[in-house]
Design a protein around this nucleic acid. Structure first.
Length: 484
RNA sequence: GGGGACGUAGGUUAGCUUGGUAGACUGCCAGCCUCGGGCGCUGGAGAUCGUGGGUUCAAGUCCCACCGUCCCCA
C-alpha cells in the first residue's frame, strides 16, 4: 500500500523558513489560532494544557518562597497609572484605553492593564501598616494588554498575553534584593530543568530595564533563528513605587518607613520558546516534565473484534501500570484513524513518548516505545514497564536539555573587534566588552540592530579590555543580540 | 516612518492578461474497505469571489474608493 505525500503536516522547513515553520506548528498542532482582532490569539485546549502545566510547576516553586496567589481587575484608572511618571511614560504608547461606559463618556479614562504595579500597590498601601504585615508576597495569574502595532507572532508578540506577575513588599532593601535574585533563580531553574531550555541570567542595561525599576534582572535564551528571547524578568523596584503609592509601615522602633518592593514575571512566551527550541519539521516536541501527555498509547489491530479486544485490554493494562507510576498517559482509541495517522498526529503535538501495542506485542508481552525527540525505537517488556518508562522519560528530558545546550553554545560568540561583531549580530549571542556608556549602546543598536540582552552575573566588572564600539575603557562584558 | 504583495469553500489555491456555466486538492459528512507511518473506493454538503460604488447586454475578471491581512527595510 503506497503512501502519497499529503500536505496536512507541516510543509515549511525549520531550517530554511523558520517564521513560516513556527506559525504552522502553532496552528497545526492546535495550540492556538488567530483571533478576529489583529494581534490577538486564541489558546486552544492543547495549548492551554501546556500553560496549566507551567502554572502548576511555578505555583509549587512560588509556594516554597512563601508566595500566594491573588487576582486583580483588568481596569486601571488613568490617575493611578500616571502616579509614577517614568513608569507611565514608558507604557503609555501601548496602553489600550476604555473611554466609554455604554454611550456616556467616562470622566477618568480606564486603562486595560499593561502591568499591575500601580493597581497592586494602591491595595498594598492599605494592607501594609506594620512590620508584622511584612513580607507581603502575592502572585497574580492574569493577562496584560499592550497594543502591538508591529508584526505580531503567536506567543511571542501579541497585544494580550497570559502571564504571571508577582509583587512583593519587604522591610529592608537587602531582603527585597534577595527576593529579586531568588525569583530569578526559580525562573532559571524552571526553564532549564522543566522546559529544557538553557538560559543566561544577569542584569538588563539601564536602557533596557523595566521602566520604574532601579534595576532589572532577566533570563535570556537564544532561539534557533539567531534571535534572543527574554524568558523572564525580576525587578528591584527599591522605593520607587512605595513612595508615590504610600506603601509604608511602622517598624519595631515605631518609626514609619517606606517599604522595599520587587516585581517579577514570565509569560506564555515560554511556550513559544519551547516550540522554537525543541520543535522540528514534524512539529512540536515537548520536554516530558511539562508535557500534559507524557506517553500516548497507540493500539494496533485489524478489523477483527477478538484481536481488537486483546490489544485494547493490553493497552488498558499498560495505561494502568504507567498511571500508577505517575506517568501522564493517554490511550488513542480512535477507531476511525489508522496507526500511521495517529503516529503523525502525536508527533505533531509533541508527545515525548509513543507506545505502540499490536498483536505481535500482545503475543510477546512487550510494547514498542518510540521517543519523539530523536525517533529512537525500542522494544520494552510489559513487566515493570512503569518504572522503565519513567526512566526513559527522564533520559529524554536530560537529552533534550543537552541538545539545546550544545545548540546554544554553537550560537554564542566572543568578539573583540567591531567588524566581527557586526557580522555576528543576528546569528546568536555576541559577547563583547562595553564601556558602559549609553551612547555606545545606542549606536550599536542603530548600526547593527543588536541590543544588550543581559549583562551576565559575574561579568559586571571588566578590567584591561576596551569597548567594542568606542575603544574606551571596558566596564563589563554584556551579551548582545537582536531580539524578538 | 518607508517600500512591496495579497484578499475566491474550514484550509491551500486555479481562473483575471483577452469580461460570457466559479474548478481543483485538502478538510468535513454518509457508506464500504482495514489498520505496524497520513491506505483505498463510492456518494454528498460546502462560495453574498473582502466591502461599497462605477463601466457593460453581461464583472471573480476592467475602473474608483474603502476595509483588512501578510512580508521586507530604518
Amino acid at each position: 500500500m503506497e503512501k502519497q505525500t499529503v500536505e496536512i503536516g507541516i510543509t515549511a522547513s525549520k531550517e530554511t523558513d523558520f517564521s513560516e515553520w513556527y506559525i504552522q506548528t502553532v496552528q497545526k498542532a492546535e495550540l492556538a489560532d488567530y483571533a478576529p482582532v489583529k494581534g490577538l490569539i486564541v489558546l486552544r485546549p492543547d495549548g492551554y494544557a501546556i500553560w496549566e502545566s507551567l502554572q502548576e510547576t511555578f505555583n509549587r516553586r512560588f509556594a516554597r518562597e512563601g508566595v500566594r496567589n491573588g487576582f486583580l481587575p483588568v481596569l486601571i484608572p488613568e490617575s493611578l497609572l500616571g502616579r509614577e511618571k517614568e513608569h507611565f511614560a514608558g507604557f503609555n504608547p501601548e496602553v489600550f484605553w476604555v473611554t466609554h461606559s455604554g454611550n456616556s463618556e467616562l470622566g477618568d479614562r480606564l486603562a486595560l492593564r499593561p502591568t499591575s504595579e500601580t493597581l497592586a500597590y494602591t491595595m498594598y498601601s492599605k494592607w501594609v501598616q506594620s512590620w508584622r504585615d511584612l513580607p507581603l508576597k502575592i502572585n497574580f495569574w492574569n493577562t496584560a494588554l499592550r497594543s502591538e502595532i508591529k508584526a505580531t507572532k503567536p506567543f511571542l508578540r501579541t497585544s494580550e498575553f497570559l502571564w504571571q506577575e508577582g509583587h512583593t513588599v519587604h522591610a529592608t532593601k537587602e531582603e527585597a534584593e534577595r527576593q529579586v535574585h531568588a525569583m530569578l533563580d526559580i525562573y532559571r531553574e524552571t526553564v532549564e530543568q522543566e522546559l529544557a531550555i538553557p538560559v543566561i541570567s544577569g542584569a538588563k542595561s539601564e536602557r533596557e530595564k523595566f521602566v520604574g525599576a532601579e534595576y532589572t534582572m532577566a533570563i535570556e535564551s537564544i532561539m534557533p533563528d539567531g534571535k534572543a528571547l527574554q524568558m523572564g524578568t525580576s525587578h528591584f523596584l527599591a522605593q520607587n513605587f512605595s513612595k508615590p503609592f504610600d506603601v509604608k509601615f511602622a517598624d519595631r522602633d515605631n518609626v514609619e518607613h517606606y517599604a522595599w518592593q520587587t516585581s517579577w514575571g514570565v509569560s506564555w512566551r515560554l511556550i513559544g520558546a519551547m516550540i522554537m527550541t525543541h520543535g522540528d519539521d514534524r512539529g512540536m516536541s515537548m520536554p516530558p516534565r511539562v508535557a500534559p501527555v507524557q506517553a500516548v498509547i497507540v493500539p494496533i489491530y485489524r478489523n477483527d473484534k477478538r484481536q481488537r479486544d486483546d490489544v485494547m485490554s493490553a493497552a488498558s493494562e499498560v495505561r494502568e501500570a504507567l498511571e500508577s507510576e505517575g506517568v501522564r498517559v493517554h490511550v488513542d482509541d480512535r477507531d476511525d484513524a489508522t496507526p500511521g495517522f495517529k503516529f503523525n498526529d502525536w508527533e505533531l503535538k509533541g508527545v515525548p513518548l509513543r507506545i505502540e501495542i499490536g498483536p505481535r506485542d500482545v503475543e510477546s508481552r512487550s510494547v514498542v516505545a518510540v521517543r519523539r525527540h530523536d525517533g529512537r525505537k525500542e522494544s520494552m517488556g510489559v513487566k515493570d514497564l512503569g518504572p522503565a518508562v519513567r526512566g526513559v522519560l527522564e533520559e529524554i528530558q536530560e537529552a533534550m536539555l543537552q541538545k539545546a545546550r550544545e545548540k546554544a553554545a554553537g550560537m554564542t560568540f566572543d568578539v573583540s573587534e567591531y567588524a566581527g561583531f557586526k557580522e555576528r549580530c543576528g546569528t546568536g549571542f555576541v559577547r563583547a566588552v562595553w564601556c558602559g556608556d549609553e551612547k555606545c549602546e545606542e549606536s550599536i543598536k542603530e548600526e547593527t540592530g543588536a541590543e544588550i540582552r543581559v549583562i551576565p552575573l559575574g561579568e559586571e566588572k571588566e578590567q584591561g579590555s576596551i569597548c567594542i564600539r568606542c575603544g574606551g575603557q571596558g566596564l563589563s562584558t554584556p551579551i548582545f543580540a537582536k531580539g524578538y
